[in-house]
Write a protein that binds this DNA or RNA. Structure first.
Lengths: 355, 355
DNA sequence: CTGTTAGCGCGTTCAT
DNA sequence: ATGAACGCGCTAACAG
């Protein structure tokens, strides 16, 4: 049995006053006599009275709780993002309820339903890898639960979203590689459902065109992000004639798998082939052979920004519009050298254009 | 304004029946006529009726929500653990509210208070690094909110806890090193407040004694887990005469910092010195110079187990006792070789006993 | 300044 | 087989 916690009613009885007086006294309502106020607050403290939030939530139709839906918590990007969300949420006295979709659309739907029933005040979400239908999220809008997407956002105009400016980071990355003398640049892209994959492809074409470099679309291949998928994709890329001398990989995890593969295949890193990637995982600083540079995506800031937008929408009671769309600029972080000391790779030479 | 969601009362009015009938119909109560039941369920579906959980929570004094308090979500161990918790929680139709203490005791207290007010059904927690006073957690017990600790558990008998069997894993690790011929084994230990630090020290002494190896306590040093702290600790260790030929590090992160340092200082990994550690981070498989072996701590399983215990306690209504204490055995995972191909380190030779 | 009343949405008696 | 009534704890509207 749950032990009975003190309630306003109890305090009222003990003091022979009415519950509403107690309520007001606890809230420092101006129209309460100093004497009674003191009495009430003293007794409340003595009994360790704490308001029952479930009752308040129920009455106020507000839970001060937001739901966060993510694909995978163990991915650094997402754990860092939710960390940002939680940090800001705490400052605003909000609680965070979370669920991970594990990139499973069905589970994503289930989580959304649970959150709707919980009456969360709002939702922050990053889509599952293959989510193409957004009905379950749109349902939330109908119930006046605002949704702010981040990173993996739907391709719709009529939503709030914080997305990563793929163009900016990708341009920097490609210009860096071109500056290093590369002309055959391969792309280890993500699944095609992901918006970012198309954006990367588009930017690739634009940049190369502007730099008057011949565009070979066969240099763009997709990986399903698994180690096996990446290996297959790399094999394809290496089979191109002439083979690419540099690879732009969707993220550091994929880059690490790819690097492992090409090294095992006998290629010399940063001589035969080199990598540039996204995510800028701190952990790569421990690698002897890491991507030469990586586009920082600022997950913490993306999460924090998403929360701020949610607050704004919640403050703007009901009027969903205008839709907030924030783009976070990436920044290419060039890794000057391996930090691991004597065995660092040789300085980058201008790569040969063919094997 | 929140849009008005359909309620039982509304359905009742539209059908000219009483709310209680609707409630019963929706719950498949046996005493409801098939006709009315169908009617109700059909209308409910049409209106997209969903019960208001906040009302139910309030009435049932049960929120089907558990709170999870962790030091740092971005640490792989913890994100993996909470992942385990959430996976099981979803299966039991529980929601997960979480907060991170960032190893700050004050914030830990604040989170606990918030969770108490939220009336979570139970709490799963891993302590902040320097938490030595457990009053805020004990307060929860008073409100009949059970707490299950995991990994970083308090040194009290009267709590539910899932802890890591430091002895088991440490023995395996030390025997492994001794088997490789090492006699001077250093320990990069954690802060002394952490229970695990003392356990590691104790096991160290026991194992060496049993193996009739001279014990030199100056070979045990503490790091505050920062890169700087680890560097200082390693410097101390390397200054011992004769210097240790192997290091047992508190976790892979610390080991990586230490390895980076010793390599920069010119030591040859796995010849001059080698490392064994804890955590078995997947990411280390990408390192050219990683710990020779690492003790797997099964964070996912620890989280899942903690949740199961919480369920048991919740089922056992009120009777906190007996206190559940589960120990998870570690297992030393020996990394046969670097996976990164041709540049793998030479096979381990019996190390020299001095520099 | 304070008390009374009412109601949030639901499930659960207790009566028909 | 169904309805009426009640109460969870709190706040707010409406008296006084």
């Amino acid at each position: 049995m749950k032990q009975k916690l003190p309630t306003i009613k109890e305090i009222a009885q003990r003091l022979n006053i009415s519950p509403s007086t107690v309520s007001r006294a606890l809230h420092d309502h101006p129209s309460i006599g100093l004497r009674t106020k003191m009495q009430v607050q003293k007794l409340a403290a003595a009994l360790h009275y704490e308001p029952n939030q479930t009752a308040i939530f129920f009455k106020q139709r507000k839970t001060f709780t937001i739901g966060v839906v993510l694909p995978e918590l163990t991915e650094f990007f997402f754990s860092r993002a939710i960390s940002g969300i939680e940090d800001i949420a705490v400052k605003h006295n909000y609680n965070v309820l979370f669920g991970q979709s594990h990139d499973d659309v069905e589970r994503e739907k289930q989580i959304i339903i649970a959150m709707k029933n919980q009456r969360v005040d709002g939702v922050i979400a990053s889509l599952a890898k293959h989510t193409r239908n957004y009905d379950h999220f749109m349902a939330l809008q109908k119930y006046n639960i605002p949704v702010v997407f981040f990173d993996r956002v739907p391709s719709l105009g009529s939503v709030h979203k914080v997305s990563f400016n793929m163009t900016q980071g990708t341009q920097e990355a490609l210009l860096f590689l071109i500056g290093q003398g590369h002309r055959r640049i391969g792309v280890l892209n993500g699944p095609e459902e992901m918006r970012s994959s198309k954006q990367r492809t588009d930017t690739y074409q634009n940049v190369l065109q502007k730099k008057k470099i011949k565009i070979d679309l066969s240099l763009i291949v997709s990986t399903d992000l698994t180690k096996e998928g990446t290996k297959k994709a790399m094999q394809e890329l290496l089979s191109r004639k002439p083979r690419p001398t540099a690879i732009l990989a969707i993220n550091d995890y994929v880059a690490m798998d790819a690097i492992q593969f090409v090294r095992a295949a006998g290629y010399k890193m940063n001589e035969d082939i080199c990598f540039v990637s996204y995510a800028n995982l701190p952990i790569t600083s421990y690698l002897d052979h890491r991507p030469m540079a990586s586009v920082e995506q600022y997950p913490y800031e993306q999460g924090a920004k998403a929360f701020e937008i949610l607050m704004q929408v919640l403050a703007g009671e009901g009027s969903q519009e205008p839709y907030h769309t924030v783009e976070i600029d990436g920044r290419l972080i060039v890794h000057e050298k391996s930090l691991t000391g004597p065995n660092k790779p040789a300085a980058v030479k201008t790569p040969k254009t063919s094997a």
